[in-house]
Design a protein around this nucleic acid. Structure first.
Lengths: 87, 87
DNA sequence: CTTTCGTTTAACCCTTTGGTTAAGTATAGT
DNA sequence: ACTATACTTAACCAAAGGGTTAAACGAAAG
């Protein structure tokens, strides 16, 4: 995954909030939806952007789809930022 | 400056390249332009986005406008990322 | 097997974004 | 005072982004 894909995914506030939510534990798409004042379709699209960036992973559990955070790809961004900051 | 403004500014590859350039030292708008295959107007707009985000500062020197990196605002982004990664 | 529930995909609508060219502003040099 | 140089701003355009509603899909339950 490119740093471009990662940062683009991070550039929307709703998506960052979703990541913040998942920090405390995995949630189903529906549970995530409840937290935002937008349609399920909108959230579903955000989730797919985050998934394409590999910032989240999903697994189906029965009729639910559970999303979990994958923070490991943030490493690349951190490195770039650290380098930019110089030391 | 909000983290939103900062990340949005970072979300364009040309703007990130500009920041990378300025890491090695301050440059005039024209010198920055030379490095990119787009019009001066396009670069000027990128510079203004970076400036609004306080990621760069400018000072006029004669007929040149010199841009310098201001990496300090990256701290907030770093903190958010670090928190998300969970130490 | 049909229905219901959870979620995604399709089709669409605006707004934002990143580019262009052309015109404007500011400083330097003649 | 003019002209050239350095850069920005204005006006415009096509593409991308984030939202909506409605249709489709997958698994479970009746």
């Amino acid at each position: 995954m490119s740093i471009q894909t990662t940062i683009k995914a991070l550039s929307d506030p709703t998506r960052r909030q979703i990541l913040d939510l998942l920090k405390s534990g995995s949630l189903s798409a529906g549970q995530i939806c409840e937290k935002f004042p937008v349609s399920g379709a909108a959230i579903s699209k955000h989730l797919s952007v985050l998934k394409d960036a590999d910032l989240i992973r999903d697994t189906r559990e029965g009729k639910y789809i559970i999303y979990e955070l994958n923070a490991s790809v943030l490493e690349e961004v951190m490195l770039w930022l650290t380098d930019l900051k110089g030391e």
